[in-house]
Design a binder for these strands. Sequence first.
DNA 1: GTCTGGCACTCTGCCCGTGTGAGTGCCAGG
DNA 2: CCTGGCACTCACACGGGCAGAGTGCCAGAC
Lengths: 338, 338
Amino acid sequence: MLSERRLEVLRAIVQDYVGTEEPVGSKALTERHQLGVSPATIRNDMAALEDEGFIAQPHTSAGRIPTDKGYRLFVDKLAGVKPLSSPERRAIQNFLDGAVDLDDVVGRTVRLLAQLTRQVAVVQYPSLTRSTVRHVELLALAPARLMLVLITDTGRVEQRLIDCQAPFGETSLADLRARLNSRVVGRRFADVPPLVQDLPESFEQDDRGTVSTVLSVLLETLVEETEERLMIGGTANLTRFGHDFPLTIRPVLEALEEHVVMLKLLGEAKDSGMTVRIGHENAHEGLASTSVVTVGYGSGDEAVAKLGVVGPTRMDYPGTMGAVRAVARYVGQILAES
Amino acid sequence: MLSERRLEVLRAIVQDYVGTEEPVGSKALTERHQLGVSPATIRNDMAALEDEGFIAQPHTSAGRIPTDKGYRLFVDKLAGVKPLSSPERRAIQNFLDGAVDLDDVVGRTVRLLAQLTRQVAVVQYPSLTRSTVRHVELLALAPARLMLVLITDTGRVEQRLIDCQAPFGETSLADLRARLNSRVVGRRFADVPPLVQDLPESFEQDDRGTVSTVLSVLLETLVEETEERLMIGGTANLTRFGHDFPLTIRPVLEALEEHVVMLKLLGEAKDSGMTVRIGHENAHEGLASTSVVTVGYGSGDEAVAKLGVVGPTRMDYPGTMGAVRAVARYVGQILAES
DNA sequence: GTCTGGCACTCTGCCCGTGTGAGTGCCAGG
DNA sequence: CCTGGCACTCACACGGGCAGAGTGCCAGAC
């Protein structure tokens, strides 16, 4: 087990390295922090920390930098979550309050998070699996052509075109619309299928085919749209990444553009509470030099989606975690109100 | 006026520079191209081209590189549009044919264009101003709370919540829905306002307020949503930009994220035909080192939106223009079919 | 046992001078 | 008007030398 002071040394190394972006040496450490011991002692501690794999030196006779494992220890044991200042809190609230619809909320959140953390922000749209149905609408565009519109409680609207085998009368349409709504409004997506299974039976022979088609399209929409969407912003912040540009940021940009990859990444994080994945802990190779801080957010107690930031492993963890948590809270509030 | 050969020299310089990314000298030129004259002669021609501002040298005694003005001349007079190979065409068609809805069409188009040109792709969603109304739906969510859903011929759906001053009966609602649709379906957005102006008068006193509110929300939606949306992809290609990274690509990334900026950029381009804006011809400062190739696309004869790519001024203009034009055509076809 | 000061050692980064090569401009002659 | 020749100019790569930061280790103090 590491002594108290050695942990303190690690903390100091992380802090200094995050601030200066340069390997930090024993002398500089004693100057900037009140450790109460001499550089020589620090050197011994550093050697121990290096043996344990928490820090490393880029070249012999350079200062030390934290390893992924070092950051991990720092995040788990040494760092708190730094709360935002109250002007910052106010700014967040003001900025988010202006949103007019769901796209706007997500868009503003992304920009906010990117600005606040000066990193790349990722915000997942509220997931449909956990949402409930607010309304199902059926329109006849032509005698044998319907449009299904699904409205969720998070304000999303999905539409699907349906070609029917046989014309479908206005009366039957109104009937189906009413019955559908009475059964599914307010329900969670996952709960819908059994509730509508027997609907076709209550219709006349001629209409049953169409009713079945409509139902299957509806269920398909519920499932399909579980593929969640996300919005990404602040990629310009990648330019502050490091000195050896192209090699580092190219794979990151590529990963960010592959929304599938990012969704998988978010999916691997805990549903509630904050998750920090550091460097190689990220499954995706392109993100090996980045850390990802994510947290779930939602309108009620339960998280309906996740948001987070992607930045260099050398990031200000307490600050970033504070910003991510705060933004998630406010977005949750906004969603609950609307 | 420049002699035939000097134009030929400029063309050769542009081609070589685009290929090698290095300043091109007189000797290398005579080796790679059959110009039929000696390096010394080329040098004279180069001096003349430099006097006219078409080429420049980064340092004394380095080769020449084209200036913005040089590229302009190249694009206007010297370069054709390089048609795609037929495998490429087939790939485009196959890839776009798989799209299931508008978002998917736009998403696939962006990815396609980015891959094909190896640059950043920008695709504007089909504009609402030029679209027509396919259906307007009114739903009662609560006695005094309506939802307006607007469906366009390009497959977009917009919804708005409306709080009414007074409860609005189901009969009146059906009435309003029917009258609205009979008047506006098939109309262009811009033509709608005069067509619905007198609607409130035909309703009973009690309902007039609500009808007016609904109309104003509808008109607002038509106008508001004229703010067009766009999708951007292929930003990872920016890493192939140049040697002096951060300074060059940072402003470009920033500009790309500001959709407002990009929309303005697209707006400045011609509505029909291809537009190429080279370097400083772009109003936005961050894009001074990029060229933007755009073209309108649409389901019919008329363009409903634009798409294009953003790349370094040193780009393969004929190839890029060919890809952009081809993609625009196929997207137009897809839109027309759906 | 633990901390400390001292010392020798090892690198990296920087500066500087040199040399080479690519490229130019100019000029005189075909 | 084209060409070959020639002198000139830089950017860039190479290599030595120097300074500085940082380390590891060891012997001695508390």
